[in-house]
Simulated assay, not measured.
Amino acid sequence: MAQPASESPRIRVLLVDDEKLVRAGFTMLFGVEPLLEVVGEACDGAEAVELALRLRPDVILMDVQMPVMNGIEATRAITAQTDAKVLILTTFDDEENVLESLQAGASGFLLKNTDPAQLVHAINTAAEGHALLAPEVTRQIIRRGVGSLEADPAGPTPEPGPSEEQRRLLETLTEREREVLELVAHGMSNHEIAEALFVGPATVKSHVSACLAKLGVRDRVQLVVLAFEAGVVDRSPDPTSGSTHP
């Protein structure tokens, strides 16, 4: 017999934002969700690191621009020392920070105007170990972010290409695994990849898992970051001709 929802393990959430009103709003929102529990609030990145280590939350909602220590630095410290999933709270104006956040170990990002139901769904998704890739936003931000990180103010922007370590890791992939990596980087879901390659979703899932293990990254978001950093895919329109994936 299935357990009643009330007996299911609750997802422990840590809220990190320098605006008290924002934290209060999230606390009220999550207070009516039977499977979510706010275990703490932090007003800056340094406090977030301290609480993450002490409270061991499952999911952390992390703002970027904060005093003392910003969200990117806090994310890097937290993901290096805990298994917590960090979701970055951002706006479209924060594009330059998003890639750095993902490189720091964040499992995804949410826009601050996200619908409450979508926010709750995102937290559940992250808690289950899945990365949050919103193709209609992620691809654009990562392309722009990669470009800004590669640009040298003193000279022309270099062509993207893998580092020696990335090249070594990429060489461990099979031809099909690399093909799957490219499609993941374009924001395609396992189901869409399965349809494109005429294989089953379970097969795609197996290939994605192999890519994660061989490349030493923790989730699909990190796969996307590595793929763009290493030049596995370019920043031109994706194979789906600009369609928006769910």
Rank of each mutant, 00 (worst) to 15 (best):
I11Q: 06
T27G: 06
E50S: 15
V32H: 07
A46V: 11
S101I: 11
I11G: 04
K20I: 13
E37G: 02
E37L: 03
T91M: 06
Q65T: 14
L61N: 07
A80H: 05
I88D: 06
V59F: 01
T79L: 02
K20D: 15
G45R: 08
E47N: 10
L89V: 04
C43E: 15
V22S: 02
T75A: 11
T91E: 14
V22C: 05
R12W: 09
E47H: 09
V49F: 05
T75Y: 03
V38F: 01
Q81P: 00
V39A: 11
I11L: 07
S101V: 03
L36N: 10
A24N: 11
L14A: 12
M69E: 14
E73K: 08
A104L: 04
R10S: 13
R56G: 10
Q65N: 12
N70M: 10
V64L: 14
L61T: 14
E19D: 01
G40H: 05
V59L: 08
D17Q: 05
V39F: 01
G40K: 04
T27P: 00
K20N: 11
G40P: 04
L29K: 09
D17S: 05
A48Y: 08
A106Q: 05
V68W: 01
E96Y: 01
S8N: 13
D63T: 10
L35P: 00
P57T: 11
G31K: 05
V22A: 09
R56N: 15
V38T: 10
E7I: 02
F92Q: 14
E41W: 03
I11E: 07
G45H: 11
P9H: 13
A77H: 13
D94Q: 04
L36H: 04
V68H: 12
I60Q: 06
